[in-house]
Design a protein around this nucleic acid. Structure first.
Lengths: 185, 185
DNA sequence: GGCCGCATGTAATCTGTTACATGATTCT
DNA sequence: AGAATCATGTAACAGATTACATGCGGCC
């Protein structure tokens, strides 16, 4: 059995998504990470963590590794995604984030890969995320009327935040799934 | 010289604010922390971290320590705030949070202490936080017109988020400073 | 020769979490 | 006697950050 821990990976899924586009070695990937308009806009990473994550993904067999030697450059470790990795990535893409505070990084990262997957994957993601968001909102709004003082202020903050999230999700959903996918998995 | 590191304290300031109300020992404070309607709504803490923080504040001389022995209970460490601690707390209260993502915990924690301080402290806090928020918003809105693709989606998210924050701040400001303070420092 | 870029990491440190340790007293 | 509550932590681990280590090749 290949190891499949459901640990809090987070960063690892982003790596998986990038390597999925085409096989690449670490250094190049790290350079691209911070390119203008890229994932670096919402997610910072530094060499230590970065290489450790690649290593981890390879041990989990979500990535396979090919050593590439060349005259003009040092030995490279070229990674490509495996079938298990592909599966894990797509599962991640379909899964809504479990809390509002994870939207700005995790959810937006998923959005970054919108053009890489079948539009239906994004439709499902947005639909499930919106449902979750509405449930959170309902729960908070139910508590609000009986809340006083500090609790009321906190719940008011949450209601407003969730309303912003809901509206942003509603407005972004059509655009995200209308984009034609580069490849259809 | 008493040590005054400007480290990322965060939790420590909340402790300072609670102990400032009246001298108290750790166990009681920890119990109160999670009471309904209290700071536990936005900030979770566990014994390990909690006692470590008290220790740290005492070494920084923001808290002073009195041992209290009793027949009916084990030895207690009763903490009270020092002049340096009082100063540090009020500085913290006046200081806006440096990023939007710190509003839900750090800023709301400051709000929790609104009734403990002079209304002018809260006025200053809200005024400075609103200015910061408007500056962030201006900066993002300036970048938005030239942004395309993923970058545009990210910036749109941020604009909406900052608008929500700005409106919440505007609506909460009057209530927060209109409340009569318990004591005027 | 020395420095920069490529490409890979390691080691130390910091921060926080988890789970348990200790010992006393009061309750059943 | 045994369990729960009071009151204090400690020890081990997990996770991330920071800074530095290594070595090769090409450029000035």
């Amino acid at each position: 059995m290949s190891p499949r821990p459901s640990l809090p990976l987070r960063l690892e899924y982003v790596l998986l998504g990038l390597i999925r586009r085409r096989p690449v070695h670490g250094y190049e990937l790290l350079a691209r990470w911070n390119e203008a308009g890229g994932i670096g806009l919402v997610w910072r990473v530094k060499p230590g963590r970065f290489y450790a994550a690649l290593d981890k993904l390879e041990h989990m067999e979500y990535l396979s590794l090919t050593l590439v030697a060349g005259d003009a450059f040092p030995l490279r470790k070229e990674y490509r995604i495996t079938a298990a990795g592909e599966q894990a990535f797509l599962d991640w893409m379909r899964t809504p984030v479990p809390a509002a505070r994870e939207l700005r990084q995790d959810f937006v990262a998923k959005l970054y890969f919108a053009t890489d997957v079948d539009p239906r994957v994004m439709e499902e993601l947005f639909s499930r995320q919106l449902s979750a968001c509405r449930r959170w909102l309902d729960a908070v709004q139910e508590e609000l009327p009986s809340a006083i003082g500090f609790e009321r202020q906190v719940l008011t903050f949450r209601v407003r935040q969730l309303q912003f999230v809901r509206e942003w999700l509603q407005d972004s959903a059509p655009a995200a799934s209308a984009i034609p996918a580069r490849r259809i998995p």
